[in-house]
Design a protein around this nucleic acid. Structure first.
Lengths: 305, 305
DNA sequence: CTGTTAGCGCGTTCAG
DNA sequence: CTGAACGCGCTAACAG
């Protein structure tokens, strides 16, 4: 029983007879033997692992997205590993991953370019990229933003605000631009308050907006739901009834905003599908299928149930 | 410039002069060269990667926990990768990870034992294990559960319920046992309704409980907050005012339950710390430090803010 | 200090 | 079914 026979047996090659295979598998099992990934990879140059890069594990944002990726990748015969933190970027260059999905503002454009130049395949969910080894699967922020603002304007408020997000972020910039255009087209004036997508920043924005409001009615477009939740939290803590003076719209349709009162309308999109599309596109890219094209994920105003 | 010099230079060996090192690094950078993890691992028998196994990415439960692990592991010089799904268990046997943290009911006891027998180091957060290669970092469910029930009983309700969780689960069984003991000690009778830790199961339990209640006051101990949220959702959808007839206590102190009305008291614990302890214990175990002992995470009733 | 050479780690796979 | 080369980087031994 030679080394190669063992290898063939364990990998299901037809070069080994059934009885031998069975015997080998039994022995391997008894010994707790498992071929090392490192050795196999060295020879094969492929790991069948996809690396996913996110900026933080905190928050409910990623769960459904990752779940979508995971399920699709499993179907396609790949495994998935989730990373957060700068140091792990090296694993892509070091060929631990056959490809990566990136939704991580801490992953710098420079580093991304380096990685692409090295020949790594990447799908990006948080910026525009043009490179033969990259594809994008992006939200249709413009359309969602337009709908959000149109809804607010239809409520005929007296003053309007946008609570912004971290500048430079793709989603922020595209949502902002579309919102501004839509406000201008409607002839309504508005103010922009800076935010950073955290609850805290929404809380602080609420303080300003409510102080400025006096007895005017106000419409607020919060560029994500976390900020909107912060807004509600401020109101609750200060015993301010939002209804009917304040109308707010958010973005992301967070599950955890389901119990806010009054209901928080929000721009929603299919997170699970987003993850699936990202996975599918990446594998198409890795396997050099021509179907590996840039994708867009639709958005629409939702009023929860 | 020989191969060995390059290796020495890139790995910071003293056998290479600074100028040479710098030059080599520049060239490597320009060429986009990065030593492959597989080759390095094969020789060194160590990856400095810790695998974390969770049963699903969904839900807000894991975020803070993973964040705690991640930060502590980073401090200790390790990288972390998060896995979900049965197929990825093999990576531990295949020596991609130097060790693992497991909080995954889909990770079977049999498989865990196999992995431990192979010599892999593991910290487990969701069951009791006794093995030289394993340590546990578990919640003090008994204490939390006792406090939850004592709180309910102090509210002097007429009927009491427990909404259970998935049977066999360590947290469920220990919470349940302590709850039963505490109810019995107080002389109160109670009913147990089955649940599975999902919102849906809490929703269904609410339907039964509310139908049975008539005009009696009711105390409900929901073994996790997701179920409690389901309870509230049922009440809201059917326009039932919970206060003052229904008193509910949960477990986990989920952030997303912050906006429930009336306030949902819940057994809380420091998730971030939990993750940190798990990480620390695992590394101690890997590095054969005697400090690698089983740990317990404290719990306490919390009324949110 | 730098270069050369060679062995090692471990599984895969071709040629026999 | 077996022998041996191979993949890639690390490192020890030795020479310049």
């Amino acid at each position: 029983m030679s080394i190669s026979t063992v290898s063939y047996a364990l990998n299901g090659s037809a070069k080994v007879s059934e009885p031998t295979r069975t015997r080998i598998k039994e022995i391997a099992d008894r010994l707790g033997y498992a071929p090392k990934l490192a050795a196999r990879t060295l020879k094969g140059n492929k790991t069948n692992i996809i690396g996913v890069y996110i900026s933080s594990f905190q928050g409910e944002f990623y769960g459904e997205l990752l779940d979508g990726m995971q399920h699709r990748l499993e179907l396609l015969g790949y495994d998935m590993m989730v990373n957060s933190g700068n140091r792990t970027q090296k694993f892509l260059s070091e060929k631990l991953f056959d490809g990566a999905i990136i939704l991580d503002n801490k992953f710098q454009d420079d580093d991304l370019n380096k990685v692409l130049t090295q020949g790594n395949k990447v799908v990006v969910l948080d910026r525009e990229v043009s490179h033969e080894n990259a594809r994008t699967v992006l939200l249709d922020n413009a359309s969602g933003s337009k709908e959000a603002v149109e809804y607010l304007v239809s409520q005929h408020q007296e003053n309007y605000y946008i609570i912004s997000g971290p500048r430079g972020n793709y989603d922020v910039e595209t949502r902002l631009q579309a919102a501004i255009e839509t406000f201008e087209k409607s002839g309504k004036s508005f103010k922009i308050l800076e935010g950073d997508f955290t609850e805290q920043s929404g809380y602080e924005a609420a303080e300003k907006i409510i102080a400025e409001a006096k007895d005017k009615t106000v419409g607020v477009y919060s560029l994500n739901d976390d900020e909107a939740i912060g807004f509600y939290r401020y109101a609750r803590r200060h015993h301010i009834l939002l209804e009917p003076q304040f109308k707010i719209v958010g973005f992301d349709n967070n599950h955890s905003a389901d119990f806010l009162y009054p209901i928080l309308p929000s721009i929603s999109y299919r997170k699970h599908l987003w993850g699936e599309q990202a996975a599918e596109t990446l594998i198409d890219l890795i396997e050099s299928k021509p179907s590996a094209k840039n994708q867009t994920i639709k958005t629409a105003l939702s009023f929860r149930k």
